[in-house]
Amino acid sequence: MDQSAQRRVPIEPQRVDAPLTSSAVLLTLALTDVSAGSDSVATVRGVLADLEDITKNVAFRDLDAALACTIGIGSAVWDVVTGAPRPAELHPFREVVGAVHTAPSTPGDLLVHIRANRRDLCFELERQLLDRLHGAVTVVDETIGFRYFDARDLLGFVDGTANPVGDALPAATLVDASDEADPNAHGGSYLVVQKYVHSLAAWNRLSTEQQEAVIGRTKLDNIELADAGASEQKSHKTLSTITDDAGVEHDILRDNMPFGSPGHGEFGTYFIGYTARLWVIERMLERMFIGDPPGKHDRLLDASTALTGGVFFVPPASLLAGLGD
């Protein structure tokens, strides 16, 4: 699509702001052939162009179930899939290596985030999308998430408390047209995903008070605890709060979902971070894995291991729709 055509299409974001639901599917996909003009690329472009209609075909079964689907595109295939100018910050996930823990970078060309308040709707939309994409992609990872009690993670703490609301939500998640540093990303969102598995045995060896000090909030009623002193070990809450050089705090949207299988001893959290500024999440991960100051890593990582790491850009729905032209 040429740039003049893009300017004629109204900017309509994907459903980055869809509400937290009781069920979700996270699919990481890799194209089978990334060469320009390949059948794989043509098939992917066609499915992305039809994403809104495919989603509507499933959503009509229960309009109150809040079915939504957002798709992010990775750096390696952005050019060949979209033909659009690159967002300024789009690049592969940068591995973060600390003295004790590592945030790995893992493969993935597309990230499909399906969510609804009914598991069957998530299942059906995933089935239809993969049927349409058959032969064009391989599934790198499939994770089924669920809401756990009152939006808690499997460690027992409420997750996503600091999420922006109201007018602050689009400001935190969508690249604004006034952002001169990222003119090609207007109406889109950067997406970072990581799959963490927890050692509940290690976590449960800590007392409730010790767990609260690690997280930075009380476990029962989710009250924020005071920040640690300059020379003390910082909590997860403090390390994941990012301010710029001017002292302005930058929010992100966390759509984290628990996942797991007690029968297989698997307990985890799928981190899903939407942001208008990729550097915010990257600085957060550096503070967590390397520490602030370096050497004092996030103690949550002593019970939580990152298995995957991916960066994607969620372009406007209007850009996806234009891929079928």
Rank of each mutant, 00 (worst) to 15 (best):
M284Y: 03
R127D: 06
A136Q: 04
G268T: 08
L174N: 03
R287L: 14
I71N: 00
I71Y: 02
P13G: 07
A228L: 07
D298V: 12
V34Y: 02
Y274C: 01
E12P: 00
P104M: 06
F267A: 15
D167R: 13
A230R: 14
S22L: 12
L323F: 04
L323W: 00
S235N: 03
A36N: 12
A151M: 12
D109H: 15
A162Q: 09
V158T: 15
L319C: 01
I114L: 06
R7Q: 14
Q6T: 06
V192D: 01
S105I: 05
R45A: 09
R115K: 15
T43F: 09
R132E: 13
E209F: 11
T43L: 10
T269P: 10
G188D: 04
S240N: 14
G263H: 14
V47E: 00
D150T: 12
A42E: 12
A68N: 13
L130T: 02
R115Y: 01
P258W: 02
E52S: 12
T82V: 05
E124P: 02
T70Q: 14
T305V: 14
N184E: 11
R283K: 15
Q233M: 11
R217N: 02
A66N: 14
G37N: 08
D2I: 14
T243D: 08
D141T: 09
T269G: 04
G322M: 14
T43M: 10
G229T: 10
G263A: 13
D50I: 00
A5R: 15
H250R: 09
K195L: 07
I290Q: 05
S105L: 03
T238P: 00
D79I: 09
L319R: 13
F289C: 09
V81E: 00
W279M: 10
P87N: 02
T218R: 12
I215P: 10
G247C: 07
A84R: 15
D53V: 10
P13A: 10
D159G: 04
S4C: 11
G37Y: 08
D53Y: 07
G166K: 11
L320R: 11
A116C: 13
W279H: 13
T241F: 05
N222W: 08
K296V: 05
L48W: 05
T82A: 05
A171W: 01
E212F: 09
L191D: 01
P104D: 09
S207I: 12
P183S: 01
A171L: 10
G135N: 07
A151W: 07
K296A: 13
L253E: 00
P316I: 03
R299P: 06
T106E: 01
D62Y: 05
G265D: 10
S231P: 00
L51A: 00
D153L: 07
R127M: 09
R152I: 06
G322D: 14
A168G: 05
Q128G: 04
V16I: 15
